[in-house]
Design a protein around this nucleic acid. Structure first.
Lengths: 201, 201
DNA sequence: TGTAAGTGGTGACCAAGGTCACTGTTTTGG
DNA sequence: CCAAAACAGTGACCTTGGTCACCACTTACA
C-alpha cells in the first residue's frame, strides 16, 4: 500500500486501483511548456525539478518531493490548458499517474484529497514568492549559498556531485559567474570544492 | 444581492447573512507581512494591490479585482500562518469579509466556493510565475511597458495619473531609472507624458 | 590508450541598472 | 499667495553580473 500522509484508506484504495505507478529514470523530461496533459502525477519516490525557461536561460522554481503533486498538471489537465513550466526527474523516481476524470470526482468525494491539493497550491505559492524575493533582493553569492543548502536538504547529500554549469543553469546565470562566486565562497570558508563536487561547511 | 459569477444562490445567501461588507478608502493598507488574520476578503468593487517588500524596496505582485479573493488570506487564516505579502487598496473599494470558521465549512458544503478558491490559487500561481519570468528574462524598458499596459487595463484609465516614483516602487527600481527609461520610450513614441500622467500610445 | 567532450579558471571588457548630487518645475496646503 | 513638499531631468560614477577568448585539466569511452 502506497504511503501518503493524511489520505483515507478508502481514497488510497481508489487511487491504487485506478492509477498507474510508473518508474522514471533520472534526467527524464516529464513536462514541457505548452504541453497539454491528461494525467496528474503524485511523486512516491525520487525527486522532480520544476523550472521555467526562455531561450537557453532557465531557472529552478521548486522541487516536487515524495508525497507531493504538481499543481501545474492539476490545472493544466482539469482546465485543459497548456503547461507554463518544465519538469524533469532529478533522480530515479516512482510516480503515480492519476487520471484527470477520476481526480475531478475524487476531489468532491474525498475532502482529504481536496485538502491535499489546497496544500500543494499553498506550498507552490510560497515557493514562487520565495523565488521572487531571492531574484529581487539577493545578490548572487547569497542566492548560490541558499541554492546549495536547499539542494543538500532535498537530495540529502553533502558533498553534492554537481557541475558549475548545472548550478549556473538552475540559477539562471552563466558558468563563469558561478566559478567566480564559488571561489569567493571558498575563500570565505563557506564551501569546499573537490573534483566535480561541492561540500557545504 | 451581491453579484459574483458562478456562485449558487444558496451560497450567496449564506455569505450575505454571515459576512460584513466594508467600504475602504483608497491607499489603505489592509494586510502586511507577518500579520495574522481571521477573515478572508472578497473584493466586490474597487482594486487591491498585492506586493512584496524588503527594506524600502518593493515589487507589485498582482491586483485583486472585483469578484476575486486573496489566497494569502485564505491560507493565512485557515492554517493560522502569518502573511508573506502586503496588500493595499488602490481605489475606494467595497470588500466582503468572510469569517474563516464559516468558510472552512462552506468549502465542504458548496463545491462552487471550493472551485472559486482553486481558480484563485491557479490565477495567483500564474501571476507569480509571470512576475518571475519578467524579472528574469526582460529588460526594464519591456517591464515598464508591460506594467503600464497592465495598469491601463486594470484601472481602465488612459492616460494614467501616476508619478515616476510610484512606478519605480512597483517595479522594484529607482525613480531616476524610470525617468531615463521613460524618456527613451517617449522618443520611441510608445508613451506620451503630461504633467504627472502617462498615456500609452 | 588516446582523443573528444566536458569541466573549471581567469583576465579583459561590456551593459544594465543603481546611486549621488544637484537643478528646476509643479502641486498643494496653510 | 507663498512656502514647503513632491516631482522630474540629468550627468557622473559605481557595482553586479554577463560575455568573450583562452588555456588547462579530467573523464568517458571507442
Amino acid at each position: 500500500m502506497i504511503k501518503i500522509p493524511n489520505l483515507s484508506l478508502a481514497l488510497k484504495t481508489q487511487i491504487e486501483t485506478n492509477s498507474a505507478l510508473v518508474e522514471i529514470a533520472a534526467e527524464t523530461e516529464i513536462l514541457r511548456e505548452g504541453q497539454y496533459i491528461k494525467v496528474i502525477p503524485l511523486v512516491i519516490e525520487g525527486l522532480v525539478k520544476v523550472f521555467t525557461k526562455h531561450e537557453d536561460k532557465e531557472l529552478l522554481l521548486y522541487y516536487i518531493q515524495p508525497s507531493e503533486s504538481c499543481v501545474m498538471s492539476f490545472t493544466a489537465s482539469l482546465k485543459n490548458e497548456p503547461s507554463k513550466v518544465f519538469a524533469i526527474t532529478e533522480e530515479n523516481s516512482k510516480i503515480l499517474l492519476l487520471p484527470v476524470d477520476k481526480v475531478s470526482h475524487w476531489i468532491e468525494e474525498f475532502p482529504d484529497l481536496n485538502n491535499l491539493f489546497f496544500q500543494q497550491y499553498n506550498l507552490r505559492y510560497s515557493d514562487l514568492l520565495e523565488t521572487i524575493n531571492q531574484l529581487l533582493f539577493d545578490k548572487l553569492d547569497k542566492r548560490l549559498m541558499d541554492y546549495l543548502k536547499e539542494k543538500v536538504k532535498v537530495t540529502k547529500k553533502n558533498p553534492l556531485k554537481i557541475s558549475h554549469r548545472q548550478i549556473a543553469n538552475e540559477l539562471g546565470t552563466a558558468r563563469e559567474v558561478i566559478s567566480r562566486v564559488m571561489k569567493k565562497l571558498e575563500q570565505e570558508s563557506k564551501v569546499k570544492q573537490f573534483s566535480n563536487s561541492v561540500e557545504i561547511l
